Structure formats: C-alpha cells, structure tokens
Amino acid sequence: MAQRTVLVVLFDGVQSLDVTGPVEVFAGAEQHTPGTYRVHTASLDGAAVRTSSGLTLVPDGTLADAPGPHTLLVPGGQGTRRPDPRLTDWLRTNASRAERLVSVCTGAILLAEAGLLDGRRATTHWAYCATLARDHPAVEVDAEPIYVRDGHVSTSAGVTSGIDLALALVEEDLGREVALTVARHLVVFLRRPGNQAQFSAQLAAQTAQREPLRAVQQWITEHPADDLTVESLAARARLSPRHFARAFRAETGTTPGRYVDRVRLEHARRLLEDTGDGVEEISRASGYGTPEAMRRAFVKALGAGPAEYRRRFRPLTH
C-alpha cells in the first residue's frame, strides 16, 4: 500500500483545532498501520504562523517545496476572512495535484475564493454558510450537515467536524477497524454521520419571544413521547391551532411539526448512544410509537437505521 501524503496548509489566523484535530486522526492511523500516512504542514514562506487562539505552529516548510499531496487539507479560522491572495492563487494552481481536496470549517471559503467549489455542493461553519452562498453563488451551500462529500472534494462544518471527516477518510482508506482504533484513542465517536445536523434542535430553531411559545418549546423537549400534535400544543399555549402554527413558525423559524421531529430524533439518538435500552423501548420513549416508525425517521434523516446507528456511532470510551 502506497503511503498517502496529507498536506496541511497553514496561515496566520488559522484555527488550531482545525489543524490538530485531523492531524491527530491521520497520525493515529499511521501509528496503528505504519507506512499509510505522511502528514506534512506548510505555509507560504515556511515561517511559523500564529493561530486565532494565540498558539504558534511551526510548519515543515514552504508550500512551494511541499511534496505532492494525496490529500490536501485546508483548515479555517479568522485568517480566511481576508485571505492572502497569494494563498488563493497557490490553491487555484496546485489543488489539482491532490487526489483528495478537504476543507475544515471556513477553509471552504478559501476553496471557494480559488474557484474550487464552483458547481459543487459544500458546507462550512453554520455561522458562515450565508456568507459563502452570497459571495459564491456558483457553490451549492448546504448549512445542515457536519460534512459534505462531492466527488474528490470534501468540506466540513465548524471545528470538531474536521475530526469526523478525517475519521471517515481513514475508514475509507484503511477500513473500519483502524478508524475504530483511532477513535477509541481520541475518545470520540467512530464518526458521526455526515448528514447529521450541525447543531441540536434547540439551537437550530430560534427561541420564541412570547412566553406561551417558549414554554411549549420547553415542553416538547422534556416530553417527546407525549401527544405533540399541533392541536395539543396549541391548547397548551391557549391559542387556536391555526394561530399557534403561524406564530410558532414566525418566532422560531420552523414549523411545530419539524421542530417535534428534530427533538424526537435527537432524543432517540442520545438514548442509542448513552444507554443500553432496546430499540422498541427507545422508540416509545422518543414518541415514535413503533420501532418501524423510528427506523423510517432515522433512515430519512441520517441514512442509517437505529441498530446501524448504534453500532457505528456509539461512544467509544470503553
């Protein structure tokens, strides 16, 4: 098996965890299976860079002298807000050398600036998705998933999602057992599915301004197995169903039904990850009623049924 070179681009204002998270994954895989990965870091002039948190990273050399990469990894950080034109020029000219192009967080902005995401589906940190879509209309921006893979180009959301994506790439290259071993060492999930939402149902929706609606949001979160029809929730808010549905959407940015779906999915995921309860018990506790109803919801949202989700994404601390 040929060794894969992972070239990590460094620049002033880079987010340190965007760099170190994926690097630890690839380095861990190399330790487990020697000869599989060579991680090389480089900046434009080979000088040390100062990260957004104040840490200093010393690269292995210059981008001009860097070895030809199998995987070119572009992290994000504050330095992507006003990128050095020399860096985007280098990416535009040299990215085609890589068999695999990867960005973490706002590294997607650098790829977009270089024209490398035109016509592709991509994501970035949720706070910058609107900016990416506005400034680069040729990019199909998806703000929901933690990472997106479109051909040989992979983009991930904020910070720790770079670890998820790196684990997925290791699993693709070396198999599940190696990725599992690396994940255990890092005390993380084997990997979250790429289409898992970037944030929870409670964070994805806005908090309602009016007290009756805020109270209903909290009730949904605490009682996912209860009757959560629009009629029942409207009665709790002391509003007509039509008025409630209209007000809920206006204040939270989502419909009551979609909010309930997200809460139930999140509740079921946590039970699968954190408990040994059976699927039938979890389906009742999460408001699905039957295992089949929960399975359909999981497949639609996550691309995997509950049993498969538990097998692949359970915590790996033991």
Rank of each mutant, 00 (worst) to 15 (best):
F313M: 04
R121M: 06
R92S: 14
G305A: 11
V187G: 01
N195A: 07
R296I: 03
T290E: 13
T124D: 03
F199L: 12
R92P: 00
D84W: 14
G35S: 11
S103I: 10
T290D: 10
V25E: 02
R4D: 00
R310M: 07
P193F: 09
G162N: 08
E266K: 02
H136E: 00
Q209Y: 09
A108W: 06
A250N: 10
E171D: 15
N94A: 09
A2S: 13
V6S: 04
G115K: 03
V148D: 06
D65F: 02
T221Q: 14
S16I: 15
V39P: 00
A183M: 10
I220F: 03
H267E: 08
R120K: 14
L91V: 11
S200E: 08
A234R: 05
T51I: 12
F26W: 13
A112Y: 05
L180K: 00
G289I: 11
T71L: 11
H125K: 08
G28F: 06
H152G: 00
P34N: 10
V263W: 13
F248A: 08
A98E: 06
R246T: 15
T41V: 11
G175N: 11
V58G: 04
A108K: 08
A48Q: 10
G305S: 12
V141G: 01
P67D: 06
